[in-house]
Amino acid sequence: MSFNGFKEVIGEGDTVILYLTIHQIYSVKADVKTLSKKGATVENIFQTPYGALKCADLIGKKYGTKINLSKGWGYVLQPSPELWTLTLPHRTQIIYTPDASMIVLQLELTPNSIVIESGTGSGSLSHALIRAIKPHGHVYTFDFHEQRVQTASTEFKEHGLSEWVTVKHRDVCSAGFGSELDNVADAVFLDLPHPWLAIPHATKAIKEVGGRICSFSPCIEQVQKSCSTLAELGFQEIQTIEVLQTQYSVQARSLNVLNLDFVKIKKNDSENEKNKEKEVVRTITSVPPSTQPGHTGFLTLGTLPPVWAKSLKEQMENSNMDIE
């Protein structure tokens, strides 16, 4: 229940982020008991590289405090969509924070927006969407994979977010978003193998006053098809972008300076040379990782104009193509 708003103290059943190092971050549940692989009720113990954690001990601790493990220590944080993205169980490829942030801003979400997402996947983006639209908005999220739908649904419930999200099992490319969602959405997000098949349904689902669309696709061929479908259906401000984040390691580096002055002087002056301390230059620098993801996906964005402006849609489309 720890995803809804800011919380000070860990309650029973909270999902808690266990921070050991920047590369060792886990999510655990503050439950006394858990089910073992065989289905028996056992004490909830989480094994870390620094020893075991009795999850029951977390209850009543304040978020942001240090907790002791049997061979070290860690810190507990309240989960945010970002921390959840780092720790969630992957059932699919997920959308990472730099893309998710851009999607939320580009879809122009506010705390009363209605947004449609397809597919739900592992629910990484869904959490960011829900945070953006709470408390007056709603997320309708669709996936064609039944088990994912159920797992996501359970997760939202456990996270205390069910009120703001409806998870549905449906193949939106063939079946659309359902007539109950005609003209209700402020924004539609698509992460599908064939997004262009869902775009006509998105057009139906977007409000009469217009709305935004975003499609996330890893491949440029998908982007090309999506863009031409968007243009045909009267979307404006069609734009494709790519965002990659680099995280730097900030380091102080000491570099020896070679003294090359003495080469110009005859050897017998070598006493001076001995007395000289080795010169070292200290510099602070930020080092990018030696490898990092060089591609996640293209974000294809567009605006569906309001009904009263649609008569001009196709013509304006051509002239607006090159907006940055």
Partner: peptide
């Protein structure tokens, strides 16, 4: 961190 962003 910083970002590389590119339009297509």
């Amino acid at each position: 961190s910083n970002n590389f962003m590119r339009n297509y």
